[in-house]
């Protein structure tokens, strides 16, 4: 079953655009849910934090004495959050600083083991700093500079989007269009 999943991940990795910008350091499979390896647990009292604030984060069932890289992983962006070391019982408890530069959105805090496997994940919503400043202000360490995002201006135009396709994707598109066109003409002739 694991072998089948690996093959599937490898196939997906092959057709993912090369310029997709995926900077996740682990294997291609690690960017996808890999429940087989996720025995550890990340927990927090908060499901959302403003950018620039601090997230109380607890971990359990991690490898005793092992270090884990913490990353904030969203659909489009990833951020390094530093390293954490589990104690002899596989526990840790930290105050995790969410960088003020994080774009608001839906993320996961991901703990990556030394071998590159994802050990645990936690869903987290990062909010705009200024939108929740009064609440978040209590939780920021003294002296920390608050990230104040510039107010967004509504725009009616379209975003510039860098569209890129791999050779395999172009091949699939060409095959589908050409195949449908050819078969369609053939059927029309056959139906005469």
């Amino acid at each position: 079953m694991i072998k089948a999943a690996s093959i599937r991940f490898a196939l997906l990795a092959a057709i993912l655009p090369a310029a997709g910008g995926a900077t996740f350091p682990a294997t291609a499979g690690a960017t996808l849910p890999s429940v087989v390896h996720e025995k550890a647990v990340l927990e927090s009292s908060r499901s959302s934090v403003p950018a620039g604030a601090v997230l109380p984060l607890d971990g359990r069932d991690f490898g005793a004495g092992e270090s884990y890289v913490l990353r904030l992983v969203g659909a489009l962006r990833e951020y390094d959050l530093g390293e954490v070391e589990a104690d002899a019982e596989g526990l840790f408890s930290i105050e995790l600083a969410i960088p003020g530069s994080v774009t608001p959105g839906a993320y996961q805090v991901v703990a990556v083991a030394p071998d590159g496997d994802v050990a645990a994940r936690l869903d987290l919503t990062v909010l705009e700093a200024e939108a929740v400043a009064p609440e978040g202000a209590d939780e920021r360490p003294a002296g920390e500079v608050v990230h104040e995002a510039a107010p967004r201006v509504a725009r009616a135009d379209e975003m510039p989007i860098e569209r890129s396709r791999s050779g395999l994707e172009w091949g699939v598109i060409g095959l589908l269009i050409g195949g449908a066109g050819g078969l369609g003409l053939g059927l029309l002739r056959a139906g005469r």
């Binding site: 589908l176 269009i177 449908a180 369609g184 053939g186 029309l188 056959a190 139906g191």
Partner: peptide, 9 residues
């Protein structure tokens, strides 16, 4: 079906 395939193309 032939016309539909052409429409898809």
């Amino acid at each position: 079906v032939g016309v539909s395939l052409l429409a898809f193309a």
